[in-house]
Amino acid sequence: MDDLADLYQEIILAHNKRPHNEGILDPRTHDAEGYNPLCGDRLVIHARQDPAGKLEAVQFSGEGCAISRASASMMTDAVKGLSGDELRKKAQQILEYLTAREAPPALDLAEYGDLAALSGVRKFPARIKCATLAWHTLLAALAGKEQVSTEEA
């Protein structure tokens, strides 16, 4: 029961219901489609970098479960204004936080805010890919890849 309450924290449910930055960003410099062949869900990430490589805005579209939508929504908030290096560092920390075999590195709440609510996903191994999809897709978009699948990551 408590595991479930941990997974579907208020913050996650709120982001799922009223996601931030859902839509097709225009204008944009990068797009990529993240695909989960196991469930058939598709998440598209749209991003705009300024000439210096700073992320001006990120939006997402597509279909997904509560976890993947909430994760995408929170990510779009968290990455705004980051340089390419900062983004890669943050993505790596989040991905490690979600997938580390042993106890995950603690996330600094002040820095990560809502994203820390993803902690409950770790107890549901079948759902971890739902949470990582947005991040993999954003990294792929910025690397100039148009498609990425949960089964290659």
Partner: peptide, 10 residues
């Protein structure tokens, strides 16, 4: 408004 995976997990 509820994704099948969320139903399955619950």
């Amino acid at each position: 408004g509820i994704h099948p995976h969320d139903i399955g997990t619950i």
